[in-house]
Amino acid sequence: MASKRVTVFESPPLDDSKASIENVLELTPILDIGPDVFTNTRPLWHPPGARGIFGGAVIAQSLCAAQRTVPEHFYVHSMHCYFVLAGDSEIPIIYHVERVRTGKSYATRTVQARQRGRPIFTTTLSFNKIQSGGDKKVEHGSTMPVVSPPKNTPTPPDARSPFETQRLDGDNSLKDTPIDERRLYQWVRFRGEISESGGHQAHLSALAYMSDSYFIGTVARVHGIPRFSSPAALQRVMKALKNPSDLDGDGISRYFKELAEEEAAEIRASTINGTLTANKLSSIIKRRDNREIGMMVSLDHTIYFHDPLAFRADDWMLCRMESPWAGEGRGLVMQKIWSKDGVHIATCVQEGVVRLRQDEEARDAKL
């Protein structure tokens, strides 16, 4: 047996009757500690080059834990999160739920995610009983932009993510638009079909998981700063792989080739028949202004779920992201999400650390 376990209990086989995201977010109660304490059933993903596990997983599992403690027909309408420490993918996470208040129409919960007894993440959630507002309502919502519909493409057999995305150019040219007005779009849906047994809570948890995807990265994208500004930057990330077993051999090359292709699309680099050559890759990640992201991590994350029953997470959803402000080593991003049929289902806000590598750091990296 290994000296460290990534889960408290041995992980059961994957449930083929459920979508991939349901298996990813599955929780196991720890009754020996308390009635509202849970842990991750399966190992969590640590993205290559990231400081810790994928933040969306902790957000979503905290929501899953809180959902288990509220009355029937109560659905989450807001979630306010703070990332305290980077999560370690080689250590189990323990989720402690506190039942702050349960009223007739609203319920409040707090969840603290801990590793080695220390909090790595905390969130406060509010739940609303469906149809508690009466028949007469004040209603309006943002209109979904008219953008190209998603293309149904076959799922690659080696797909790592439980969801798939199709990025789009915005409705304006980034280079001709003020930075705070630049908007980025992507279609998102989860692979497979979310089971009926998971209920609509499974769709809400999936949406929470996806909401952290590429989010704080919007700041770099609207500024045209690529993820890798030089071949040396790319090599630094490869050397910092936390879980190379997930991407060994050809997997590593394939992963970074995909990232490079994303970079190419974002900065409108020229391509040959849609593919990149080695020379093209070198020119794409070599920027004339030499700006390079030194640190980019999330600080806080808020989700407002507007219409929890009006969508399926395994059907296409449109996300629009923008950054109204950046400065003082931080950036603010906003995201609106619509169902495929145009219902405004969620709004997200995130602030994060966004620091550029300084001149002395770049000089030291060359030595």
Rank of each mutant, 00 (worst) to 15 (best):
A2F: 07
R5D: 15
V8Y: 13
P12E: 13
L14D: 11
D15P: 01
D16A: 09
V24S: 02
D32F: 01
F38C: 05
A50I: 11
A50C: 06
R51A: 01
F54R: 06
G55D: 04
G55T: 11
Q61Y: 07
S62H: 04
P71Q: 02
E72I: 04
F74R: 08
V76W: 11
C81K: 10
Y82L: 12
I93L: 12
E98N: 09
V100C: 07
R101L: 04
K104C: 03
A107K: 08
R109Q: 02
R109G: 04
T110G: 04
V111D: 03
Q112A: 08
A113K: 05
Q115S: 12
P119A: 09
I120H: 04
T122Q: 12
T123N: 11
T123E: 05
L125D: 07
S126G: 12
K129F: 13
Q131D: 15
S132P: 15
G134P: 02
D135P: 08
H140G: 11
M144W: 06
N152A: 09
T153I: 13
R160E: 12
S161A: 09
S161P: 00
P162W: 01
F163P: 02
E164Q: 14
L168V: 13
D169Y: 15
N172A: 10
N172I: 02
K175W: 13
E181P: 02
L184M: 13
L184E: 06
F190C: 07
R191C: 09
E193Y: 00
I194R: 00
E196V: 07
E196L: 11
E196N: 10
G198S: 11
Y214V: 05
F215G: 01
R221S: 11
I225A: 11
P226K: 01
A232Y: 14
L234D: 06
A240F: 05
A240H: 03
A240R: 09
L241Q: 15
L241N: 14
K242A: 12
S245A: 13
L247A: 02
Y255R: 06
F256G: 08
K257Y: 14
E261F: 13
A264S: 14
A265Q: 02
N273C: 08
L276G: 00
T277F: 02
T277A: 08
A278S: 06
K280E: 04
L281R: 00
E292L: 04
E292P: 08
I293T: 14
G294Q: 09
M296T: 06
L299A: 06
T302M: 05
T302H: 10
H306Y: 03
A310M: 03
A310N: 11
D315H: 00
D315M: 00
L318C: 06
R320T: 01
P324W: 07
E328H: 14
G329A: 04
Q335S: 10
S339T: 00
V343E: 01
E351A: 08
V354Y: 15
V354S: 03
R355A: 05
R357T: 14
R357A: 13
D359N: 09
E361H: 08
K366L: 15
L367R: 15
L367D: 05
